[in-house]
């Protein structure tokens, strides 16, 4: 098992009602799989919300394997000005 820390901002924060969450996941879980897990955890609150994935403060363009201790941010676009 691996432990992944999710830092929550914007719609993700309001959907999960927390700033930060620790997930215990199977070894070999990828960033795309993790995004799906987070979306499921939110019920339908993240339905239709675009999310970009950053692992350890760096954007990941393609599906990438997560490792124990990784910190993930799912970043939605925001538009207010």
């Amino acid at each position: 098992m691996i432990k992944i820390k999710l830092k929550c901002f914007s719609q993700v924060k309001y959907a999960l009602e927390t700033d930060e969450l620790i997930f215990e996941l199977e070894d070999g879980t990828t960033s795309y799989e993790f995004e799906k897990i987070v979306r499921q955890r939110s019920g339908d609150k993240l339905e239709g919300v675009t999310l970009r994935i950053a692992v350890n403060q760096e954007y990941v363009k393609d599906d990438t394997e997560l490792y124990d201790g990784d910190e993930v941010v799912l970043i939605p676009p925001v538009q207010g000005g």
């Binding site: 901002f9 914007s10 719609q11 924060k13 309001y14 675009t50 970009r52 676009p77 925001v78 538009q79 207010g80 000005g81």
Partner: peptide, 27 residues
């Protein structure tokens, strides 16, 4: 720059043609 409730985002994009908004949030 952009806002959402109590939060904001800031970035410097398109310096020397690299890293624009369409790369930040494609599609």
């Amino acid at each position: 720059g952009a806002l959402y409730r109590y939060e904001g985002q800031v970035a410097i994009l398109n310096v020397n043609g690299k890293g624009g908004y369409s790369e930040l949030f494609p599609g």
